[in-house]
Design a protein around this nucleic acid. Structure first.
Lengths: 133, 133
DNA sequence: CTTGCCCCTGACGTCAGTGTGAGGTTTTAG
DNA sequence: CTAAAACCTCACACTGACGTCAGGGGCAAG
C-alpha cells in the first residue's frame, strides 16, 4: 500500500493531480484511520490509463462515464455507442494529425533542401513581387 | 474583400475566434477607414491552417513562431529544429492515440460479444470474488 | 431620418487541469 | 522526544481559447 507521494513519483503525475482525479471520481483510494490515502499497485495502471484518455482529448466527465466499462470490459449498449463515438473521434483526430504532420514534413524537407543548396532564407531580401501572396 | 462575418461563415470559425487570431498575430487584416476588417481570399486558407495547427496541439505562441516559415516554405536552421520537434511530438501523439484507440476498440469488441452471447451487464450481480480486482 | 444589420473595442466569464500557499496533522528518522 | 518530511483540507490563482455582454459606430434600404 503506497501513499500518494509514491504513486505520484511512479506515474509522473503530480500529487495535486492525483487528488484531483479522485475528486473527479477517476481514482479511488483507501484511507488510513488518520485520513491518508493508500493505493494498491493497480492504481499505477489506472493513473496511466486516465492519462492516456486525457491525452486522447476526453474530458474528465466523459472519462468518468466510460472508465468503469473500460476497466470492467463490460458495457451497456448505450455506453457502447459512446465508446464507439469516441473511437471514431480519435480516428478523425489521427487523420488530422497525420495531415498536419505531412504538411510540416514537406516544409521541413523543402527548407532543408533550400539550406543545402546554399540558398539563404528568402525573407531577407524578397522583393514585393512575391507571387504567392 | 470580405468582412469578418463572411470569413467566419466560410471557415466555420467564430468571429470572436478570428479577432483572437489577429490579436495573437496569426491572421492579419486590412482596415477600412472606419476600422472594419477586410480579408482577401487567402485568409480562408490561412484560417484553416491555423485551425489545423491548433488541432495538432500547438499553442498560439508556437504557431506564431512557426507560421511564417510554414507559409513561406522557408526557415532558419533553428526554426527547422523546432518544426522537426513539433513533427516528432505529433508522431508521439499519434502513437498514443492509436494505443488508446486499440484499447477502446478491444473493449468495444469484448462488450459487444458479451451482449451478443446474451450475458447481461456483469455489474448488476457481480459477486465479490471478482478475479481482476 | 430611422430601422436593422453588421461591425468595433473593451472587459469580464468559463472550463479544465493544475500550481500554490495557508494552516494543521501524521509519519518517519535520528 | 524532536525535527523534518510527507500528508491533509480548503481555497484562491492561472493559462488558453474562446463566449458573451455592454456600449457605441457605419452603412444600405425604405
Amino acid at each position: 500500500m503506497m501513499r500518494i507521494g509514491e504513486l505520484a513519483g511512479r506515474t509522473d503525475v503530480s500529487v495535486r493531480a492525483l487528488r484531483y482525479y479522485e475528486e473527479q471520481g477517476l481514482l479511488t483510494s483507501e484511507r488510513s484511520p488518520s485520513g491518508q490515502r493508500h493505493y494498491a499497485e493497480s492504481a499505477v495502471d489506472r493513473v496511466r490509463l486516465v492519462q492516456q484518455l486525457y491525452a486522447a482529448g476526453l474530458s474528465s466527465k466523459v472519462i468518468t462515464e466510460l472508465l468503469p466499462c473500460v476497466v470492467e470490459g463490460d458495457a451497456t449498449p448505450e455506453l457502447l455507442e459512446r465508446l464507439a463515438a469516441e473511437r471514431d473521434r480519435i480516428d478523425g483526430k489521427v487523420a488530422e494529425l497525420l495531415d498536419v504532420r505531412s504538411r510540416l514534413d514537406s516544409v521541413i524537407t523543402g527548407a532543408t533542401t533550400n539550406l543545402l543548396t546554399g540558398r539563404p532564407c528568402r525573407n531577407e531580401a524578397a522583393p514585393e513581387t512575391a507571387p504567392g501572396d
